[in-house]
Design a protein around this nucleic acid. Structure first.
Lengths: 338, 338
DNA sequence: TCCTGGCACTCGGCGCATACGAGTGCCAGC
DNA sequence: GCTGGCACTCGTATGCGCCGAGTGCCAGGA
């Protein structure tokens, strides 16, 4: 067990290192924080912290930098979440209030997060799994061609064109539209399949093929859209820590383009609360020297998706966590309103 | 006027520099291309080319590198477009054929272009200005709440929710839907305003407010959607020329995030044919050491949007132009089919 | 007139040696 | 258990000299 002072030393090291981006030595530490002890004492503490694996030296006789384990302890025990200031909160709200549709909400959220944290922002589109059908619309494009439009309560709209096995009259179409909506409107996505199971049987034989085609496209859309999409922004911020980079920046950019990777990482925790993954805690190799701060957001009580920030392990955790939490909260409000 | 051989020398310099990324000297040139003359002669030619501003030396007694003006001449006069090989063309087609909707087409196109050229790919979503209305759908969400769904011939779907000044019955809604579609379906966007101008007058007084609200939202959607959107991919490729970077990569990433900038650049030329903007020809400062190769694409005859590639001025122009042209062609086909 | 080989010159890059200084570990003393 | 002192380490910065690629120019030849 580490003494109280040693924890303070660790905290001081993390704070200084995050601020200066340079290994921090014992002398500098005592000067910048009044720990009430001499550099020599701090040196002993540092040796102990290093022994335990919380800090490390890049090379002999240089200062210390925190290890992933050190950051972990810092985040878990030594630092809280720094709340946004009132003006910042107002700015967030103003910025998000201007959004016109779901795409715009997501786009604005990404920009906002990137600006606030000066890091790479990631926002997952609201998931369909937990959301409900607001309306299903069917449009006749040609005698044997139908367009299916699916509208969700989160404001998302998906459309598919279906080639019908046989011509399908306007009357039948209206009929199908009405019956379909009466069954699925307001229902959860996961419940839809069984709700429409027997629908083809209630149609004339010649129309059943088309009805089945429409239904299977609908179900397909539900499943496919569970493959979530992401919006990413603020990649220019990657260049802020560019000294050690090219080497580091490249795999990160690659990982960001592979949305699958990010989605997997975001999805790992079911916990809708704030999650911080530090360095090697990220399964993906390219992200081994980055940390990801993420949190669930959603309209009403339930979290429908996640958003977060990707940055160097050497990041301002309290500030970042504060920004992420605040943004998630406001996005949730916006979604609930619309 | 430059002699034929001097043009050949310039061509050789560009090719070698693009290949090696290092300033090219007179000796290396004569070794790698059989120009039939000695290094000394080439040196004289180089001096002349430098005099004319086509090439430059990074420092005294180093090899020469092409200037923007040199690349310009190379692109305009010295190099053609390198056609894609048959297998490459097949790969493009296969990859794009799998797309399920417009978003997917755009997403796939971006990935494809980025992979083919190993550079940053930019694809503009099909514009609404020149496209036509396929269908307008109206859905009743609540007694005084209507959703407008606009479907274009390029497969784009836009939706807006409208709060009506007064309750609006299903019958009136169906009526409006029918009349609206009979007037605007198949018409160009720019023609829509005058086509619907007198529509409110033909409705009952109590419905006119709602009809007007719907129409103004429709017109608004047309205008707003002229603010084009972009999809960008392959940013990881920026790190390929990372020696001189951080300094160069940052402003490029920033410019890419400012979609407005790119849209302006893409929009500058009305010409739907291939455009190459080299280095300082790009108005935006951050893109002064990059070149942009773009071309219009569209379903049928008319170009509805542009796509292209952003890369270093030191790029393989013939290959890039070939890839961009081929991709644009196939995307056009896909859009025409759907 | 144009090309060629030769030659002196320039200058950036690389390797090496040196000096500097921040930071450490350890120890004796309080 | 804390402190000041001290010797030691080692990474970085600086200066110097060499090397070689590349140039410009010139005189001679087709």
């Amino acid at each position: 067990m580490l003494s109280e002072r040693r924890l303070q030393v660790l905290r001081a090291i993390v704070q200084d290192y995050v601020g200066t981006e340079e290994p921090v030595g014992s002398k500098a530490l005592t000067e910048r924080h009044n720990l009430g002890v001499s550099p020599a004492t701090v040196r002993n503490d540092m040796a102990a912290l290093e022994e335990e694996g919380y800090i490390a030296q890049p090379h002999t006789s240089a200062g210390r930098i925190p290890t992933d384990k050190g950051y972990r302890l810092f985040v878990d025990k030594l630092a809280g979440v720094k709340p946004m200031s009132a003006p910042e909160r107002r700015a967030i709200q103003n910025f998000l209030d201007g959004a016109v549709d779901l795409d715009d909400v997501v786009a604005r959220t990404v920009r906002l997060l990137a600006q606030l944290t000066r890091q790479v922002a990631v926002v997952q589109y609201p998931s369909l799994t937990r959301s409900t059908v607001r309306h299903v619309e069917l449009l006749s494009l040609a005698p044997a061609r139908v367009m299916l439009v699916l509208i969700t309560d989160t404001g998302r709209v998906e459309q598919r064109v279906i080639d019908c096995p046989a011509p399908f009259g306007e009357t039948s179409l209206a009929d199908l539209r009405a019956r379909l909506n009466s069954r699925v409107a307001g229902r959860r996505f996961r419940d839809v399949p069984q709700l429409v199971e027997d629908l083809p049987d209630s149609f004339d034989v010649e129309d059943r093929g088309t009805v089945s085609a429409v239904l299977s496209t609908l179900l397909e859309t539900l499943v496919e859209e569970n493959e979530e999409r992401l919006m990413i922004g603020g990649t220019a911020n990657l260049t802020r820590f560019a000294h050690d980079f090219p080497l580091t920046i490249r795999p990160v950019l690659e990982a960001l383009e592979e949305q699958v990777v990010l989605l997997k990482l975001l999805g790992e925790t079911q916990d809708p609360g704030m999650t911080v993954r530090i360095g090697h805690e990220n399964a993906h190799e390219g992200l081994n020297s980055t940390s990801i701060v993420s949190v669930g957001y959603g309209s009403g009580g339930e979290a429908v998706a996640k958003l977060g920030v990707v940055g160097p392990t050497r990041m301002d955790y309290p500030g970042t966590m504060g920004a992420v939490r605040a943004v998630a909260r406001y996005v949730g409000q916006i979604l609930a309103e619309s």
